[in-house]
Design a protein around this nucleic acid. Structure first.
Length: 585
RNA sequence: GCCCCCGUAGCUCAGUGGAUAGAGCAACGGUUUCCUAAACCGCAGGUCGCAGGUUCGAGUCCUGCCGGGGGCGCCA
């Protein structure tokens, strides 16, 4: 429980943490010293349940129900709780006093961060995500890395950490010989205008086709790679142009998608080229490097190939060229030694797992990744079509991200037009943008990232179920209440939750910081999604059962305050996911 | 052949070693002169892939199998 490396400060307003903190010293003393986790958990039978008596009784060799009774009778929780009762084999069911909930809610409502406080021990977190390839179209395959990475950036920042975004674009390597030659063949002007329109796919494919057809082109391409790598100025100008056209295009996609990536975050493979010889020298000096089939390799223990032989990480090919293992190692060094990273997240597809494990293992063996610095592969699964196979367009090609996003906005616009015709064209366009893009992002973020998920327009854009439109709608309804409240000149006041529905909503609101902590510990934005969905459900249930503006006096002002806090939590939570919450829809 | 990931309701998915495994969708039955019904309430739906093991307690941890996906030397 005590963890000085915790990513999120334990909230003083979290009733679960409060119970835990009260019980810990008492239990520890009862156990004769040593840390004891009270194991406070959500419960179906009460506001919370304490399970800690069972393992401790086992340890002390006493009866768990007796120990649970002892805990209850210790009086540690008396001022917080309305009821404490021992149940089953030794659980303690906790019912918080209404006054406890009121008090904590008031504190959270007065806090602009809703109880989510900046870490007192901020870490330097490098997050590697998106990583499209220069001269190639961004397709649905880049969606997950970009969206998940963006959410993590926002969450780590909110928790008070120093976040460094790194967009490791594919801007170097063998294909650039053919791309530059193709650019020259087309003439710079033509190519420039073609790429400017975002028609990157056909450019790349044309170059590729020429490469496989013409030996003369292959030869030129190979020579061009050599020129590029040797720093030939004329070649570099052309390369620069290709990269600039692509990154300008990426920026338009990022803007449409509403992610934080900007040019300053670009850190493509080319940036690590100058660092590779030194990386190799350091590996050499470490004594880890050996030679295998003419290539320079390192054998991290525990990895085997098809034949059961040790599997090498190849850091220099037989031909003398470096590859992505070398570049990834240089990258680790750069992030730790130049940027001062103590946590590195790689938001990269699951198939890269073994490669990354090997890179991390070698970096550790070489002493580049000391104690206290960690690298985490934030892996994710595929986006599937309704046929459960990789999502493809009708023609069987990968789906362009821009096409996907504009279809999302179109569909959202049609839905808004049908359901709220009173919005002006401009309002509708803005709202459709938030709903459409939000729906795509939420669909991606709301399931465990490591699994594949099925991409389905109707489901993600539905206004009910676990979707962003449902959450956005809950938020918009609250905003509507406040527009009306302003007209009527009423405002929120002191919080006092009484009805079961508002009490349940209030208790859930207090869990916001803890759920962000939970999501961060496992780099799992879907945990935040689940929380927000439950919040929206609890709100709509409250909204049905507890009249707000139609009540009066203290009840009305209290309910308005609960509404306000709910709206702020929904908006902030969606914000951490990179999703906007419109005030009307 | 070896390694990794996944397998939970008809469908899409949650589930921190804790009580009777939960939502949503679809289906069925209700609710609106009332703050956005784009909603809510109710009802039903399960051999948690299978078999062992550890544990006071296993969907969760361990082992083996079955099914699906992915990876396994010089592309990135």
């Amino acid at each position: 429980m005590v963890n000085e490396r915790a990513l999120v400060q334990t909230a003083a307003t979290d009733p679960f943490a409060l119970v835990s903190a009260r019980l810990e010293p008492w239990l520890s003393q009862r156990a004769g010293g040593g840390a004891v986790d009270p194991v406070v958990r959500p419960s179906d039978h009460a506001d919370a349940q304490i399970n800690g008596a069972l393992p401790l009784a086992k340890q002390l060799g006493c009866n768990p129900r007796d120990l649970a009774t002892e805990i209850v009778e210790s009086g540690q929780l008396d001022d917080l709780c309305a009821a404490l009762e021992v149940a089953g084999p030794g659980f303690i069911n906790v019912t918080f006093a209404d006054s406890t909930i009121d008090h904590l809610l008031t504190e959270v409502a007065n806090d602009e961060h809703l109880g989510l406080h900046k870490s007192s021990e901020p870490r330097t977190v490098v997050i590697d995500y998106s990583a499209p390839n220069v001269a190639k179209e961004m397709h649905v395959g880049h969606l997950r890395s970009t969206v998940i990475g963006d959410a993590l950036v926002r969450m780590y920042s909110a928790a008070g950490h120093k976040v460094i975004r790194e967009n490791h674009i594919g801007d170097w390597g063998r294909p650039f010989g053919m791309l530059i030659e193709h650019l020259l063949d087309l003439g710079e002007e033509v190519a420039s205008s073609g790429l400017g329109q975002g028609d990157l796919d056909s450019f790349y494919k044309a170059a590729n086709a020429k490469f496989s057809e013409s030996e003369e082109f292959q030869e030129r391409s190979r020579e061009r790679v050599v020129l590029l790598q040797s720093g030939n100025p004329e070649t570099h100008v052309l390369w620069d142009r290709l990269v600039a056209m692509s990154t300008a295009y990426f920026n338009t996609v990022y803007e449409q998608l509403g992610v934080l990536l900007v040019d300053d975050d670009l850190m493509g493979e080319s940036k690590y080229q100058p660092l590779m010889p030194a990386t190799l020298e350091r590996l050499e000096a470490s004594g880890l490097m050996s030679e295998s089939d003419g290539a320079k390799v390192v054998f991290p223990p525990g990895f085997t190939n098809r034949d059961g032989d040790p599997l090498p990480l190849i850091v220099q090919a037989r031909t003398g060229g470096f590859n992505y293992a070398t570049s990834d190692l240089a990258c680790v060094i750069d992030r730790i030694e130049r940027l001062g990273a103590d946590l590195m997240l790689y938001v990269i597809g699951a198939p890269q797992q073994q490669h990354l494990e090997m890179v991390f293992a070698v970096a550790k063996m070489a002493g580049w990744m000391p104690e206290g610095v960690s690298a985490v592969h934030v892996a994710f699964g595929n986006v599937l079509g309704d046929d459960k196979k990789m999502l493809r367009s009708r023609s069987g090609e990968s789906v362009k991200l821009v096409d996907l996003l504009s279809e999302a906005v179109d569909r959202a616009s049609a839905a808004v037009e049908e359901k709220n015709p009173s919005l002006s064209d401009a309002e509708r366009a803005a709202v459709a943008e938030m709903i459409g893009i939000g729906a795509v992002k939420y669909a991606d973020l709301s399931t465990d990232r490591v699994r594949d998920y099925v991409f389905n327009w109707d489901r993600m854009l539905a206004f009910d179920g676990n979707t962003s439109p449902y959450l956005q709608y809950a938020h918009a309804r609250i905003c509507s209440i406040f527009r009306r409240a302003a007209e009527e000149g009423v405002s929120s006041g002191e919080i006092a939750v009484r009805e079961p529905a508002e009490r349940a909503l209030g208790l859930h609101l207090l869990g916001y910081p803890a759920v962000v902590a939970d999501a961060l510990e496992s780099n799992s934005p879907h945990r935040l999604c689940t929380y927000l969905f439950e919040l929206a459900q609890l709100f709509t249930s409250f909204y049905e059962q507890c009249p707000v503006l139609k009540s009066d006096g203290d009840t009305r002002s209290s309910r308005l305050a609960v509404c306000d806090l709910t709206a702020r939590t929904l908006s902030a939570g969606l914000g951490l996911l990179g999703i906007d919450a419109p005030e009307q829809m």
